[in-house]
């Protein structure tokens, strides 16, 4: 069976700036792969290329076995996306958001109506079925966006900073749900700024900076390799130490 995602020598330039400067990575089925990096490292552009929303200058992408961008539309049929910024439909209730989104996949209404209560239950929003989107909290909206990304029962989930802007309670609830999805055999590609999120969820991760992958491996291996001695005697070394060691302490934006 084809890998859920395979990216080879991907390059994308905007004007003089090479935002993605030749990166390669692949996801194995059932794993959570994290893309970490400071703002402007090229994470979101990489995701957009993978989804076929931006045409790369060079390189090859195969998502769920389909070449992208040539067959991006077909590939996206088996992928779920949680974008960085909420784009739920403000004119619809929670359930209508899922119904309308499912129709974009040409899933028939009967199947959708059977799936929607389960997805709302999964997102902890069963009591909000008919609630207007404008009345939902930030955490609820993120969970609904996650439920929306599952409407087509995707093989691969692409999450762009899924917990940015959420309070710790809301963040932990999302992590718990994502771990549940991994246990069900879903594959996840995730970008994040939260090292704790990456350490908890990701089997493997890549640290990007200035369009390049500068380190790749399991969280434990990266820590062992780059921070042999903890910078603080009070705690063990962690991924944040690795991140700052590799990408420096200068502000990026």
């Amino acid at each position: 069976m084809a890998a859920p995602l395979e990216v080879r020598d991907l390059r994308k330039r905007y004007g003089d700036r090479e935002v993605v400067a030749g990166i390669s990575f692949a996801l194995a089925k059932g794993e959570c792969f994290g893309l970490l990096g400071p703002n402007g490292a090229g994470k979101t552009t990489t995701l957009r290329c993978c989804l076929g929303l931006t045409t790369p200058d060079a390189g090859t992408i195969a998502m769920v076995g389909e070449p992208v961008p040539a067959r991006a539309r077909e590939a996206r049929e088996r992928v779920g996306v949680v974008p960085q910024f909420d784009n739920l439909d403000p004119d619809f209730s929670a359930a209508e958001n899922l119904l309308v989104f499912g129709r974009y996949f040409a899933i028939d209404d009967a199947t959708l109506r059977a799936r929607i209560p389960r997805l709302l239950e999964f997102a902890g929003l069963a009591s909000k079925t008919d609630a207007n989107i404008r009345t939902l909290s930030g955490g609820m909206k993120r969970r609904l966006t996650l439920a929306r990304a599952l409407i087509n029962d995707p093989d691969l989930l692409v999450l762009d900073e899924p917990t940015t802007g959420l309070d710790p309670q809301a963040r932990h609830l999302i992590w718990e749900r994502l771990q549940g999805l991994l246990a069900d055999g879903k594959t996840i590609l995730l970008t994040t700024h939260f090292m704790e999120e990456a350490e908890r969820l990701c089997h493997r991760l890549a640290i990007m900076d200035e369009g390049r992958i500068i380190a790749e491996g399991t969280p434990q291996a990266l820590i062992a390799q780059h921070i042999p001695v903890s910078p603080s005697p009070l705690r063990p070394a962690n991924l944040e130490d690795v991140f700052l060691e590799l990408t420096g302490r200068d502000l990026r934006d």
Binding site: L51, L53, A72, R73, E74, R76, E77, V81, P83, F85, N87, L88, D89, P90, F101, Y104, F105, A106, A149, N152
Partner: peptide, 14 residues
């Protein structure tokens, strides 16, 4: 404003 088109294009719609 609403990024509705962006959301739709995350599905299999060009």
């Amino acid at each position: 404003v609403q990024k509705t088109w962006e959301a739709i294009m995350n599905g299999p719609v060009a």
